[in-house]
């Protein structure tokens, strides 16, 4: 690891993509990427570098600059390129302690594989669904990971590492239009690797998924009738008429403990 990172400055690279509005598909700053940038900008003593691999002329990039970013590095890539090799090259040449990405892109394959592939190539650990970075220092970062159902888990991860920022991270600041126009877009030179595998895949607008039907596999008419008319009710649980209230409370507590919801 790089001990010189610990002392004063923290190099943070944020990987930004161009998003798309879920309904109109109009290009915009990607939601999770904007959250990642917000998180990077709010880290104390961080030197933030923002990188976009794609089309340097896209207007949506100005929305990131409008968040208070002085400059944005662009590795020019056509739409059908595989951006992993060029980003790996870039990160090898410009070492960073933290690489922040979103969880999934809003355009293209949206597979969410990019952070994992980067981490695999660079040999770094990767943590998905990060909601907050609590501290960075001593070769470790303490992060909070978002779990389903609004829960959080504390993790420490050794540096350098890749963190994917989740929906649950704090909302990004507004983008100021004038600031965005003033910001610099620096176009670097980059090799292009075409993603040939995907050339013959077919792309269609998302079809509505069929709703699952409740199939009743009943052998007799009576069972079918019952399945069609029965109220949604469990097959009768345990009913306790406790002699003392403590007895009832014990039974409830036992079940809560079994289910592991008592924290």
């Amino acid at each position: 690891m790089q001990p010189e990172m610990q002392s004063s400055e923290l190099n943070v690279s944020v990987l930004l993509s161009v998003g798309a509005h879920p309904k109109t598909a109009r290009s915009r700053r990607a939601d999770q990427d904007a959250k990642a940038l917000e998180l990077a900008l709010s880290l104390p003593k961080a030197r933030v570098a923002a990188i976009h691999a794609g089309d340097a002329g896209d207007e949506a990039l100005r929305q990131y600059l409008g968040m208070g970013l002085p400059a944005l590095q662009v590795l020019p890539q056509p739409k059908e390129a595989d951006v992993v090799p060029v980003l790996v090259d870039y990160l090898r040449q410009h070492p960073a302690t933290l690489v922040l990405t979103g969880g999934k892109a809003e355009q293209g394959e949206s597979s969410g594989m990019l952070p994992y592939l980067l981490a695999q190539e660079l040999g770094w650990p990767v943590v998905p669904r990060v909601a907050a970075v609590e501290s960075v220092g001593n070769g470790k970062a303490a992060v909070l990971q978002a779990l389903p159902r609004g829960q959080r888990r504390a993790l420490t991860v050794s540096l350098p590492c890749v963190l994917c920022i989740d929906e649950a991270a704090p909302a990004p600041r507004q983008s100021a239009f004038a600031l965005g126009q003033r910001g610099k877009i620096e176009v670097l030179s980059a090799a292009v690797t075409t993603d040939s595998e995907r050339a013959d895949w077919t792309v269609q607008p998302a079809r509505k998924r069929p709703k699952r039907l409740k199939v009743v596999k009943a052998k007799t008419a009576a069972d079918r009738f019952k399945a069609a008319t029965a109220k949604a009710s469990g097959d009768g649980g345990q009913v306790i008429v406790p002699k003392t209230v403590e007895e009832g409370a014990e039974a409830i507590l036992k079940m809560l403990k079994e289910e592991g919801v008592l924290r």
Binding site: G237, P242, V245, A249, A251
Partner: peptide, 23 residues
């Protein structure tokens, strides 16, 4: 009670108080 996996037939106030104490 028919839907529940576990039902305790008791008064709510007493049960809640007992549950708080136990927890």
């Amino acid at each position: 009670v028919k839907r529940a996996d576990l039902s305790v037939i008791a008064d709510s106030t007493d049960m809640l108080a007992a549950l708080i104490k136990l927890v």
